[in-house]
Design a protein around this nucleic acid. Structure first.
Lengths: 124, 124
DNA sequence: CCTTGACTTGGAGTGCACTCCAGGTACCAA
DNA sequence: TTGGTACCTGGAGTGCACTCCAAGTCAAGG
């Protein structure tokens, strides 16, 4: 008897809507979710764990299509771990670059802020 | 006789398409761009300068609607500098938070990478 | 004069990631 | 028995930021 979570519980835990949760499943981002006799979804620990990673990757702007690829590899079993590693390391790299870009742009914005502050200070 | 730039030059300089350039103008992200007698746009230094900031803000995910607000303030003249400052500092703050979030998520991803590498190392 | 290439316009189309909806089912509490 | 709540389905709709298109204009070169 494994612990299982209702859609409402899972949605609340990850700050997702039920629609988004179902959308992710439709798009193949989760492995097939089990059902209660009523037909209602029952998320198991492994579903929650995968969803946790999926959310993490989405929150860092990995596109749905790429996430689907990743989830397919998960479904294919442990022999796909090298492929999954490749996806994750590529994403890690992209993330490093994105963060560097944001920091650089932020500097320019802070320059502009300092400039405007200078203009205001001068005008008093 | 101020130096002016053709649409092609400006697009190339910022890595934008001509369509995007026109789209930005339509959306009010640029102040009215002058025309040559032929009807072709001639971007002046001040246009390029504003576009530089606009791109910087777009590249850091400021929505078009907010950029339009900002550009409207620019059009209204120097008395709106305090309002512009408010937009920029709010964005700067949001950016700091976004970068922190990305770094945090990246750590989780790196954890997962290390885990997968461990699995592979074990399996030899 | 004719072609080429860079540009013009208004408007339609695209891709992504949701988000909403109508109509129906399951189960619990009063 | 009647609410109420949580969930189900297939499919349509939304918002954003472009992106593309057809048909036309303009200036320069051969």
């Amino acid at each position: 008897m494994e612990t299982a979570y209702t859609p409402g519980e899972v949605a609340a835990r990850f700050g997702l809507s039920l629609d988004t949760l179902r959308y992710y499943e439709r798009e193949g981002l989760l492995t097939e979710v089990e059902r209660a006799p009523s037909g209602h979804r029952r998320y198991r620990a492994s579903d929650v764990e995968l969803l946790d990673l999926v959310r993490c990757l989405r929150d860092t702007d990995m596109p749905i299509a790429r996430l689907r690829e990743f989830a397919e590899l998960v479904r294919e079993g442990d022999r796909t771990i090298p492929d999954r590693l490749e996806i994750l390391t590529a994403h890690d790299q992209a993330l490093t670059e994105r963060i560097a870009e944001l920091r650089q742009r932020q500097e320019m914005i802070q320059h502009k802020i300092a400039y405007y502050e200078g203009v205001l200070a001068e005008a008093d």
